[in-house]
């Protein structure tokens, strides 16, 4: 089976994707990750204004058969949360790179994140 790995973003080994616009990073999970999880039934996310730390967990995603931690790709303040996921967690399955996004993070100056994967590198990882 082949999975979408859009070229226009970066990835974590733990299957989150990120895009960077100005100082703001948007985070979600990959097509591969949503397929592994199966039907997503619940997403727990931080609130706007919370801070997250690169490499630490920022939330939890639950499917019928599994539960996984979500890892922050960068450090910073949460500026937006996709509240639609609270009522429609299936958006993560239906459109993981679009409507299934989770957080927007305003990257802090002392952000220590590095080693994000390129699309090609991530595609290799899940191959």
């Amino acid at each position: 089976m082949s999975f979408d790995v859009p070229e226009d973003r970066n990835y974590l080994e733990s299957h989150e994707w990120t895009t960077l616009e100005e100082d703001t990073v948007t985070v979600g999970i990959t097509d591969f990750a949503q397929d592994e999880l199966g039907d997503v039934v619940f997403v727990e996310l931080p609130s706007e204004g919370d801070t997250v730390t690169a490499g630490d967990t920022f939330g939890v995603i639950e499917s019928i058969k599994a539960v996984s931690d979500l890892y922050a790709p960068v450090s910073g303040e949460v500026t937006a949360v996709n509240e639609a996921l609270f009522d429609q967690p299936e958006l993560v399955n239906d459109d993981p790179f679009g409507d299934g996004w989770m957080l927007k993070i305003n990257v802090s100056d002392d952000d220590t994140s590095d080693s994000l994967l390129t699309a090609a590198e991530y595609a290799d990882q899940i191959a």
Binding site: E62, S63, I64, K65, A66, V67
Partner: peptide
């Protein structure tokens, strides 16, 4: 909501 339970979440 069985993901709360031991057969899925094990030590957590």
């Amino acid at each position: 909501l069985q993901t709360r339970e031991q057969h899925i979440r094990k030590e957590r």
